[in-house]
Simulated assay, not measured.
Amino acid sequence: MAINLSKGQKIDLTKTNPGLSKIKVGLGWDTNKYDGGKDFDLDVSVFLTNANGKVDKETNFIFFNNKQNENGSVVHAGDNRTGEGDGDDEVIDIDLKNIPADVEKIAFTITIYEAEQRSQNFGQVSRSYVRIVNEESNVELIRFDLGEDFSIETGVVVGELYRNAGEWKFSAIGSGYKDGLAGLTRDYGLQ
């Protein structure tokens, strides 16, 4: 049975699931009743950072135009441009045992594509979540529902996987960005 996390909560992932190697990180959302005449496209981006919380090479920034890191241990399964339907809208496949040694943290973010031009923000997004599934057994291990805490933000750091004493842990972040992907890439050390 999945463990439901609250904002700010941290949990052991590999220590409590011995032998866990391959996981799927599913992110999902719906949009509120919104009638702006424009598509609502949310995108998942993943930042693989060093110990200083910075991405040290562009291949460690995973998104719809760069679907995997150098060794293929983190793979974006594809861009969902509508968020229609039930279940995960975008999925990241991760092979924990093959994450390069210089990667200390894997941050999962959701941004709204062309948010400013379309006058869109996370106040118009509902039922957003992140969940971690054991790929082998297809069992959901962790779930974090973001809630409705956002209004003017156009980007959100949903959660982070991070190394701690040789094990992987997950932290439920839920931190919003008013300047979306530009703010995220800046803070993670990309131009």
Results as ranks from 00 to 15, higher is better:
112 I>K: 04
70 E>D: 10
124 Q>I: 09
158 V>E: 01
34 Y>W: 13
60 N>Y: 09
85 G>V: 06
3 I>V: 12
127 R>T: 08
153 E>S: 01
83 G>N: 06
34 Y>E: 08
125 V>I: 04
119 S>N: 15
127 R>W: 12
150 F>D: 03
48 L>N: 00
143 R>G: 07
141 L>S: 11
46 V>Y: 04
60 N>F: 09
32 N>R: 15
76 H>A: 04
78 G>I: 05
91 V>I: 13
151 S>N: 14
25 V>D: 00
54 K>M: 10
149 D>H: 14
113 Y>W: 06
36 G>P: 00
45 S>F: 03
38 K>S: 09
50 N>R: 05
79 D>I: 00
186 R>F: 12
108 F>G: 01
97 K>A: 14
110 I>P: 02
163 R>W: 05
102 D>S: 02
82 T>Q: 04
25 V>I: 10
40 F>I: 05
140 E>K: 09
17 N>H: 12
157 V>A: 10
79 D>N: 06
98 N>K: 09
6 S>C: 10
113 Y>L: 04
152 I>S: 15
189 G>D: 09
107 A>P: 02
130 V>T: 10
125 V>G: 01
91 V>H: 08
69 N>F: 01
159 G>N: 14
61 F>A: 12
144 F>V: 10
90 E>R: 09
185 T>I: 08
20 L>I: 04
44 V>M: 01
129 Y>S: 03
34 Y>A: 07
127 R>K: 15
59 T>F: 02
61 F>Q: 04
77 A>Y: 00
124 Q>C: 13
98 N>Q: 14
131 R>Q: 08
133 V>D: 06
154 T>E: 05
118 R>M: 03
153 E>V: 05
160 E>D: 09
52 N>T: 06
